[in-house]
């Protein structure tokens, strides 16, 4: 089972992201759970969203405590949430940042496998708004191969209707531009 935790702020679409990915995985015949860190929705407040993907029915109903992957939509959260603290040893960090991988490693001391992409710039260019949730799915897929990019097409259409194409384009652009580097013990 693969467990992924999304770190974002209320309004950045972390919950939408896990739902889209869960639907994509289910459409591929897998089992998945996508759910938010339950509570009152507050725009701007740090939020978590969780995703589990498995080959058979998932019985857990608790939060993801030790994720295999963390995805950080907003780098300003790193100082507040210390998201990598409970990441598994062989885990992966997927980060939205304009900085290079080596800069990120230097700044935050990340030792895990690292995937970095400047999702803000891509989102602004492709979507016209700096909302990075669907863009970052491209980076996640590049780093983990958790689903095929094409599997997102249908869930995106269901969710965004005519805006689905742009979101898919942003996702694909991020997939191309994401830099991935293995863990540095």
């Amino acid at each position: 089972m693969l467990e992924i935790r999304f770190h974002g702020r209320g309004g950045q679409g972390a919950v939408t992201s896990v739902e889209l990915l869960a639907l994509a995985a289910i459409n591929e015949g897998k089992f998945a759970q996508g759910f938010p860190s339950f509570g009152p929705e507050r725009r701007g407040a740090p939020v978590l969203a969780f995703l589990r993907i498995n080959d058979h029915h998932i019985r857990l109903r608790c939060k993801v405590a030790h994720p295999d992957v963390i995805l950080i939509l907003d780098p300003s959260l790193i100082r507040i949430q210390k998201p990598a603290m409970d990441l598994k040893a062989g885990g992966v960090i997927v980060l939205n940042s304009p900085k290079s991988i080596s800069e990120v490693r230097r700044e935050y001391g990340f030792k895990h496998t690292l995937a970095v992409v400047d999702a803000n710039t891509i989102a602004r260019e492709v979507l016209g708004v700096p909302i990075t949730n669907t863009t970052m799915l491209g980076a996640l897929i590049k780093a983990t191969g958790v689903v095929a990019v094409e599997s997102l097409e249908h869930p995106l259409k269901e969710r965004f209707g005519p805006l689905a194409a742009k979101n898919l384009a942003a996702c694909k652009a991020a997939y191309e531009k994401t830099q991935v580097e293995e863990a540095r013990p």
């Binding site: 869960a22 639907l23 289910i26 938010p36 109903r61």
Partner: peptide, 12 residues
């Protein structure tokens, strides 16, 4: 049905 931990989960 348990609130949130069941009602708010996207699953198959």
């Amino acid at each position: 049905m348990d609130g949130f931990i069941l009602t708010h989960v996207v699953e198959a």
